[in-house]
Nucleic acid binder design. Structure first.
Length: 287
DNA sequence: GGGGGTTCCTGTACGC
DNA sequence: TGCGTACAGGAACCCC
């Protein structure tokens, strides 16, 4: 599932080929890939053709490629199974290919950016850019908080936000309006590393606990990024179709029944928020 | 505005 | 072999 590290790997992979490229063609094969673009496929194509990509940016799990008109950007959210692939222009269609964008780079020549998505939770759009504290971000990203790896992430504001929330800390970690980029996998991993029970009310966490949690969130995200992200199957791959290696480093997620790497107790899996939570019942005690 | 549940979707695994 | 069902989960949306 693409979370911050996976989306950042995709952004960094797209940047060298996309930035500076001229968009020569846009083909939409499945309009469900444009649920974020309410004006429809025809409008989507018209807003992209003959423009150039000027940069490659990201906040949380959203990535976007600003256009050279300085007023709009192609935004992408990968959802559960979205992929942005770089392919040769004549490459055969991917199995779940939804959108293909033909580009021409001044040095690398012709390429295709292919958006493929099995479960169709992901989508693309062309969105207006607005000012946000000195930077320009798409309107659809305005409500998304900065991510913990962002140099302008405000640790004190995060601590204050937790103090106002009576919800379980895991629910708050997954709330992209409080802190972005964290999904089910890295929430479980960070809570395991910080020895915090996922259902602990956020407001009950002491200041040292919040500091420890934030440090572990950053550590987990950075390690996953260094290993190219987490791949369980073909659902997440980089722009070249290659898997990441962080799945081998997981301590809690998907390890139910296996011994905790710290204390040997069986990792437990419980249903929480219509998804799974994995934790060690011994070293992540509920207080 | 916080809180929490529902919904969208498709491929895979599993039980019978 | 074949069928039905549970499961995976990001985020918008809804009602309380």
């Amino acid at each position: 599932m693409p979370e911050l590290p996976e989306v950042e790997v995709v952004r960094a992979g797209l940047a060298p080929a996309a930035v500076g490229s001229l968009i020569t063609s846009v083909s939409v094969f499945d309009e469900r890939a444009l649920t974020r673009h309410s004006a429809g496929a025809e409008d989507f194509v018209a807003r992209l053709e003959r423009r150039r990509f000027a940069a490659a940016s990201r906040r949380g799990k959203f990535l976007w490629l600003p256009l050279d008109d300085d007023d709009s950007a192609l935004i992408a959210h990968l959802g559960m199974s979205g992929q942005m692939l770089l392919r040769a222009p004549e490459a055969t269609a991917e199995r779940h290919e939804r959108v293909r964008i033909g580009i021409e780079h001044p040095e690398h020549g012709e390429l295709a950016i292919v958006f493929a998505d099995q479960r169709t939770f992901g989508s693309l759009a062309v969105d207006a850019l607005v000012d946000d504290g000195g930077s320009r971000i798409p309107t659809q990203v305005v409500h998304i908080a900065r991510d913990p790896l962002d140099s302008r992430f405000d640790d004190d504001a995060f601590r204050a936000a937790l103090a106002r929330r009576g919800s379980a800390i895991k629910r708050v970690l997954l709330d992209q309006g409080v802190v972005s980029g964290i999904g089910n996998i890295y929430a479980d991993e960070s809570l395991w590393a910080a020895r915090i029970h996922p259902e602990t009310p956020a407001a009950r966490l002491s200041t040292p606990s919040v500091r420890r949690l934030l440090a572990e969130v950053r550590s987990v995200l950075e390690k996953a990024l260094a290993e190219g992200g987490t791949s369980f199957d073909a659902q997440y791959v980089n722009v070249n179709g290659q898997a990441g290696y962080f799945a081998h480093s997981l301590n809690a997620y998907g390890r139910q029944g296996e011994p905790c790497a710290r204390c040997g107790t069986s990792i437990r899996r419980v249903s929480f928020m219509n998804r799974s939570s994995h934790f060690c019942p011994s070293c992540q005690r509920r207080r």
